[in-house]
Design a protein around this nucleic acid. Structure first.
Lengths: 203, 203, 203, 203
DNA sequence: GATGAATGAGTATTCATTCAT
DNA sequence: CATGAATGAATACTCATTCAT
C-alpha cells in the first residue's frame, strides 16, 4: 500500500516534466506560467506543488535528467572499443539527431539560458558537460594510443573544442533558420576528423 | 541655436544603452527593471521613455548596434588583401578579445536569448550574422583563389561552420567557467586552419 | 461535491459588481482604482482577476445586467393589458424611483459616459435602449388601437421621445441639484400624457 | 507696447481652447493628453502652461465660455417680444442646430461628464443652466400673460422640463446613433408646444 | 492526494507639470 | 515669451505560491 506512492509520485513527476518541457520549448521558460504547465499536464494549479517545490525545480529536474542521460551514454561505451575515433564521431551523429528535433534544441537553449541565473541548473549542466568532456577525452586518449589521431593533441583540450562545436550547433539553430542539422551532420564529422587527424595526411 | 538636440539626443541614448548593457550583462535582460536602468543612467523613471519607447527598444538598439559594428568590420577589410586567410584568422583573434570581456560575452548571450522572443532583435542579429558569414565567405573565396586553402571547400558552408565555432565559444563561456578565451585563442586559429587546409599537407 | 463553483462564482461576481458599482457611483469609473474595488469587495488585489479579466470587464458586466433587467421588465408586461397607456406611465414612475436613488443615477451616468469609449458597453446600452423603445412602442401601438392616444402619432418616434425625457431626467440629476425625481414624477406623467393625448381634448 | 500682451494672450488662449475642444470632442477629456493639445495648437509642451495653469483649467474655460454664450443669448432676446412662445420654440431650433454638430455635442457631453468631478466646471454649467432656465421662465411668463400657453403651468417648472428635453437630446446623440437632430427638430417643437398648450385645444 | 480560490509582491509605462536654458 | 528635457507619482495586471476544504 505504501509502495504504490513512490511509483505514482514518479509517474506524476514525469508527466509534469514532459508537459513542462513541451511548454518551455514552445514559449520559453520565463514566458511559461505554472498554470500553463498544469493545464498541459492535466492537473490543478495547486497540485503541481505537491510534486515540485517551485517552477525552478522543474527546469532543475530537466537539467539533471539531461546530465544523467549524458553520463549514461558515455558510461555505456565499451572502454575497449576497437574504434574509439568512430565512437567519438558516432556521438556527434547522435548529437545531430537530437539537434534536428526542434523541440529538444529549443529546450536545450532554455536550459542553457537558465544556467546563468539558476546555480542548481548550472551545476547539473556543468556536471553533464564534464561527463561529456571526460568521456570524449577518454576516447581520444584511446584513439591516440591506437594511432587514429594526432598524438600531439591534448585530449582534454580537444574534448573542449568538440564541446564548442556542439554548443555552436545549438546556437546556430536559434540564430540561423537555414542551418539544417540533418544536412550538416557529415560536415561536423569532417570538421572534427580534420581537426584530430595526424598532420601530413588528408582528411 | 535651438535645435542642438540631435547631438544631445544621441548622447543620452548612448548613456542609456551603456547603463542598460551593463545591467543586462550583470542581471539579465528580464531581471533588469527599468528603474535599475534609470538609476544606472542617472535619470528619473519617466525620462527613459523620452529616448526609448520601451525596455524592449533598448535591447533592440543594442542588437542593431552590434549588427552595424559587424558589418562595418567586414566593410573595412581590403578587398584585395594579399593574405585573405590571415584576415579570417585575425577576425577570430578579435572575436576572442571580445569574448574575453565578461560583460560583453554576457550581453551577447542575453541578446541571443532575446532572438527567440523578440523578432526585431532576431532581425538585427540575423543581419549581423549574414554580414559576418558573407564577409568570411568572400575572404575564403579569395583565399581559395590564391591557393591558401582547400579549393574543394564550399566558402559559404565553411563560413557557416566558422560561425558555429564562434557561437560555440560564447556558449562555452556561459557553461564552462574553465574556458579562458585568451588562452584558447591560438586553438581557435588552429582548428580553423586545419579545417581549411589543403589535404595532404599539415597545418 | 467538487464543482459547487458556478454558484460561488456567481456570488463572488455579484459581490464584486456591487462593490464596484458603489465605487463608480461615488468616485467615477476612471478615478476608481482596482485596489479600491478589491478593498470594497473584501478581497486581495489579484483575486479580482479570477472573476473579471479587467476593470473594463466589470463595467461591461454592469451594463449588460442593466440591459437584461430592462428587457426583462418589458418581457414581463402583459401583452393584452387592458390599459397599455397606464403601463407606459407606470414605467415612467418606476424610472423615477430609480432616478431617486443617487447611487443608481450616478452609476447610470458613468455607464453612459463609458458608452463613448468602450464598444462593449456601447453594445449593451444600445441593446437595453432598443428593448425599452421597442417595449414602449408596442404598448403605444396597443394604446392607439384602444383609442387611448392620438392615432396619428408614430409609436416608434414617440418611444424615442420618451427615451429623450428619461435620459434628460438622468442628466438633470447631475447638472441641477434642485431637481428632485420624487417631486417631479407626476410632472413626467403629465408631460408624456399631454404629448400622447388626442388633440381636441385635454390631458 | 504693453497693451499688445493681453491681446496676444487672449489670442493664444483661444487657439488653445479651440485645439483642445477639438481634441476633447474626438477623444474625450481624459484620453486627451496635454501633449496632444499642444501639438494641435502648434506649441511646445511647456508653453501651454503659460496660458492655462492646468489641463482642468482648459475645460473650465470652455465651460465658462459656454455659460456666457447662453447668458448672452437670452440677454439679447427682446423683453417685449410680441411672440414669446415663438422665442422659446426658436431657441429649441437653435439648440437642435448645435446638436447636429457632432463636434459640439460630443464636447457638451464631455463638459457634462466633468460636472461630476470638477466643481469649477459644475459651477459654470450650473450658471449657464440657470441662465437658460431663467430666460425660458421669463418668456413663458410673458407667453402666459399673452394667453399663448396654459396659464396654470408653473413657468419655472416648465423651464425645468424643457431643460430635461434639451439634455435628453444630447444624451440620445451619444446612445442612439439613429437619432438625427435635423430630422427631429420639428418633433421637439411639437412636444413642447403640446406640453405648454392650453387644455381643451389641440396642438 | 486533489482542488482551485486566495494571496500579494512586483513592474513597465503614462502624463501633467516644472524649470533650466 | 518659448522650448523641450526632466520629473516622479500613480496604477492595472501577472503569476508563483499557499492553504482551506
Amino acid at each position: 500500500m505504501r509502495k504504490v506512492d513512490p511509483e505514482r509520485q514518479q509517474a506524476k513527476r514525469r508527466q509534469i516534466i514532459e508537459a513542462a518541457a513541451d511548454c518551455f520549448a514552445r514559449r520559453g521558460f520565463h514566458a511559461t506560467t505554472t498554470a500553463e504547465i498544469c493545464a498541459a499536464a492535466g492537473m490543478s494549479p495547486g497540485n503541481l506543488f505537491h510534486y515540485f517545490a517551485s517552477k525552478n525545480a522543474i527546469i532543475e529536474a530537466i537539467a539533471e535528467e539531461e546530465w544523467r542521460d549524458t553520463a549514461a551514454y558515455f558510461a555505456a561505451i565499451d572502454r575497449d572499443t576497437p574504434d574509439p575515433l568512430e565512437a567519438v564521431l558516432s556521438f556527434l551523429d547522435v548529437v545531430m539527431v537530437f539537434a534536428a528535433d526542434r523541440s529538444y534544441s529549443r529546450l536545450a537553449l532554455e536550459v542553457a539560458a537558465e544556467t546563468l541565473r539558476n546555480p542548481v541548473v548550472g551545476t547539473s549542466v556543468a556536471a553533464g558537460d564534464a561527463a561529456m568532456r571526460d568521456g570524449l577525452a577518454a576516447l581520444l586518449r584511446q584513439a591516440a594510443a591506437r594511432g587514429q589521431i594526432d598524438p600531439d593533441l591534448d585530449p582534454a583540450q580537444c574534448a573542449k573544442w568538440i564541446a564548442v562545436l556542439i554548443d555552436g550547433v545549438f546556437s546556430r539553430l536559434a540564430l540561423d533558420t537555414g542551418f539544417d542539422p540533418v544536412h550538416e551532420a557529415p560536415m561536423l564529422r569532417r570538421v572534427v576528423s580534420r581537426f584530430l587527424a595526424k598532420p601530413g595526411r588528408g582528411a
